[in-house]
Amino acid sequence: MKITLNVWRQSGPDAAGSFVKYEVDGVNADMSMLEMLDVLNDRLESKGEQPIAFDHDCREGICGACGFMINGVAHGPEKEITVCQTHMRSFKDGDELTLEPWRAMAFPVMRDLMVDRSAFDRIIQAGGYVSVRTGSAPEANATPVIKDNADLAFEAAACIGCGACVAACPNAAAMLFTSAKVSHLGLLPQGQPERDKRALDMVAQMDKEGFGHCTNHGECEAVCPKGISVNFIARMNRDLLSATLRSTR
């Protein structure tokens, strides 16, 4: 196959960027999207040109490092999949693809398709945990957990922190990401003592980072590679409301 790429090239955080066109021939349908970029990069490197920078690591769809827009869709056309698991058989010979980085104020572009997502780490640092010291844990089976709650908590906890939800949202909101963590811990007995504080602190940090607000477009769920439901946003809003009413701050 032959694929034409329009790739966002930007040499650094403060540099101006632009789209650059590449013709890639000899593309095999069994290649992943990133392997196709590897092939292009190999050709660029051999000629002494700068390869296209993009974040990636596990290439199994679980580490959450990879992600960019393919023709305006976060992680590309396939459902519940990251770009590393998107294969070229999803496209046709002669297709033209536009690749650009996540666009959000809170995710500044570092280079080409690579963005800075450290805002997500700071949201977790604000309260995405249970405060338990190593060694102070009670016997694991001392606290039974309702199976349905445990399963639902797992679904929220499956978030890989890739940032596609933010990139897809017209408001660049981080509600799906934040609500997944608030819901995961809020559904478990271990997460109850800090439930109010967690919702208040994580939402405050989210706002501070410059993410937008949720206006119920649902674009986040549509592109989430782990299929995380927008219902968790509703759950977080409930937690936030009751925490605000109870708050003595």
Partner: peptide, 21 residues
């Protein structure tokens, strides 16, 4: 001890209907 620690952190291990691991 690892299992105790992970459960206390909120790691959502698979559970049986009785709520135990």
């Amino acid at each position: 001890n690892i299992i105790d620690q992970a459960v206390a952190q909120g790691v959502p291990f698979a559970r049986e209907y009785g709520g135990l691991l």
